[in-house]
Write a protein that binds this DNA or RNA. Structure first.
Lengths: 186, 186
DNA sequence: ACCCCGTGATACATTTTTGTCTCACAAGAT
DNA sequence: ATCTTGTGAGACAAAAATGTATCACGGGGT
């Protein structure tokens, strides 16, 4: 049974996410295929990286689409939307979280533009949460977005290290993101 | 005026932190020296990476030493200690935050052992905060540590992107880490 | 003025990575 | 049974990165 294109991409991304400078032979081995096969589907390293980046954007875009609320949504609707968003984002960032930092990807003007556009879309979601009174208005929307990303990456790292189970990620990230790590009696 | 060893290391680390697979010539140029000079001080890429890793550990160890509290410390002493820790960590992670993920560094048994030892030391600090009743007892100490690291990395990234000023980092990270991004009226 | 030291520049060999090609082989379709 | 299709393995060349050596130059100290 050969892995499908997307499974191959996921496996490659998973390995690259922990070693961005891994040689293609190493990536292929981690994905369970030969270097020749990897090469047939993505002729160059650049093409592979680009495919990873495009998938990253596609996955997160879909999650954003599910999370976004109508302009007249009730404030109570935001919290479950954010929950779903975090839930879907956790495994995605495990695989594709590194793409938006990768200078080799940001060098591609088209991909770079897509990343920026997605960033703005995410920012609108978080700004909406602020307008609805659910997220702190005194923090920049960009930070509401980046901090979530950072927590998810930390959690993914901890999972890789065996420090927490994949099931715990949702609780850890959600708790810290929403109410912080301090006890409430302050 | 030639940069000192530590300044050179900082400059190299800053560039490597945003492009872990940068060629040595690129690193040298970013540090303002020739490839030959870089090579004279750290004969191989591995040696340079190792020096970066060792400096990372030294810097964070010093911050930990300043943060640690005596076993009989009053609970009120923890919060300012954490503040100082975050404050000192912010610029350090900007330069050296990537080292503890870098597989090329973790391949070195000695450095890897140092990283683990430092991790345990940090864990003790956070567990102490839990015993003192300042940090949530229902989260793993490892998460209290990793989540701080992740927030600091996110903030460093945002600073690089020009989204927040260096001065804002302390407030952003501290706020989110302590009390989260949600409004308090929940 | 002279010497020393470290630097930048350059050239070069070596190693690693990448990209291309060929071929034997196995699974699945016909 | 045969054919098709895509794979793994390997050889190979090209490119990139790395490590080594040499040399001219310039500032600082004597």
């Amino acid at each position: 049974m050969l892995p499908s294109d997307s499974a191959l991409l996921d496996a490659a991304a998973q390995h690259l996410s922990r070693n961005r400078s891994a040689a293609l032979g190493e990536v292929a081995r981690a994905a369970g295929v030969s270097r020749a096969t990897l090469h047939r589907r993505w002729p160059t390293r650049e093409a592979l990286l680009r495919a990873v980046g495009e998938r990253s954007i596609a996955v997160v875009d879909e999650l954003l689409a599910e999370a976004e609320l109508p302009a007249d949504a009730a404030p109570e609707a935001f919290d479950p939307a954010l929950d779903r968003f975090i839930d879907g984002l956790a495994p995605a960032i495990h695989l594709y979280g590194f793409t938006c930092y990768e200078p080799q990807l940001l060098a591609d003007p088209e991909l770079s533009a897509d990343v920026r556009a997605q960033d703005e879309r995410a920012l609108r979601f978080f700004a909406h949460g602020q307008r609805l009174g659910r997220l702190r208005p005194d923090l920049p929307a960009a930070w509401l977005w980046h901090s979530l990303w950072g927590l998810l990456e930390s959690a993914a790292y901890g999972v890789d290290e065996g420090q927490f189970g994949r099931r715990e990620v949702r609780r850890l990230v959600t708790t810290t993101y929403r109410t912080g790590n301090q006890t409430e009696s302050h």
